[in-house]
Design a protein around this nucleic acid. Structure first.
Lengths: 155, 155
DNA sequence: CAACTTGGTTTTATGATGCAACCACTGGAG
DNA sequence: CTCCAGTGGTTGCATCATAAAACCAAGTTG
């Protein structure tokens, strides 16, 4: 098989995430969905992507439990795509991508929008990694540990 | 053009990030680099990917300023790939991907490792989005604002 | 029911991916 | 110096994914 190597069975959680949303469009679709878009045509016109690709991505996202199809909403007999909890859970990923771009992009002046706290209108703070007790952690302060064996009985 | 639509010129910072590291391998390469890998062969054997793809990805990452080639390190005349500051700055993205998988994966028991605080050996806290003043923010507490116009003189 | 919109699928061309084979250079043994 | 193994790639080819455009069916509107 020459297929595009799926990471589904991989033990690395990063690879597993990428398997679900590591392509060129999925995260952008989710971004628009978080923004309130729900309809096929809305995604298509906002993102300017080919309709067949959009259809394939939406199907994939639904299969992965990131989007769900809702029967209606505005009365019409059409269908909508709404984020599940799993889908909304990608928000930190999007924020991290955004902040990385803001911090390191070679042409930051081309970035059109900033993410702000709705109440104050001020930019949100950079994401920080903290220990359970609240200490700020750098990458070097962390390490990977094997996952503790699950309790042997089915649970 | 039928090309794989680059987002380089896009105004959305998420798209810009994805343009640099939104393919199937780049983030995994960065992950291994953060882990300490530096040599072509190390990446190749650890990730099990084709050498031509690895070469292309490394070149792309170097072009994007995420990796840099260092002349040596252990005396041998070979070359190494080391993360730049921009590359190390992707750490929150990787953590966000990892945590998303930990929180929402359908088969979490297959995840082999957990990210822990080196000092205490306890899992790191989930990433949180906070306002400038420290208030915890949910996605709904945020909004996008147009970037303030840059000071008009070249600066 | 005719025309238009919405939400797709099909077709076809091209770029990306993956594997294997091949090649250049290093470094060491004889 | 020569031979040989290991490192670090590149090149060809087969296959897959992507993109654009054409097509199409159901819903909806007049």
């Amino acid at each position: 098989m020459v297929k595009r190597t799926s990471f589904e069975g991989d033990a690395c959680p990063i690879a597993r995430s990428l398997d679900a949303l590591g392509d060129w469009w999925s995260l952008l679709i989710i971004r628009e969905a978080l923004f309130g878009l729900r309809r096929f045509g809305e995604f298509q016109s906002k993102l300017g992507m080919a309709k067949n690709i959009l259809a394939a991505r939406l199907r994939s996202l639904v299969d992965h439990g990131i989007l769900a199809t809702a029967p209606a909403s505005d009365g019409s007999a059409y269908q909508e795509y709404v984020l599940t909890a799993k889908g909304r859970g990608t928000f930190p990923i999007l924020v991290a991508l955004r902040q990385w771009s803001e911090a390191f992009d070679d042409h930051p002046e081309e970035i059109a929008t900033i993410l702000v706290d709705r109440e104050k209108g001020r930019p949100v703070k950079k994401l920080e990694m903290r220990a359970e007790d609240g200490r700020l952690l750098s990458p070097a302060d962390t390490m990977l540990k094997p996952r503790p064996a699950p309790r042997r009985r089915s649970a």
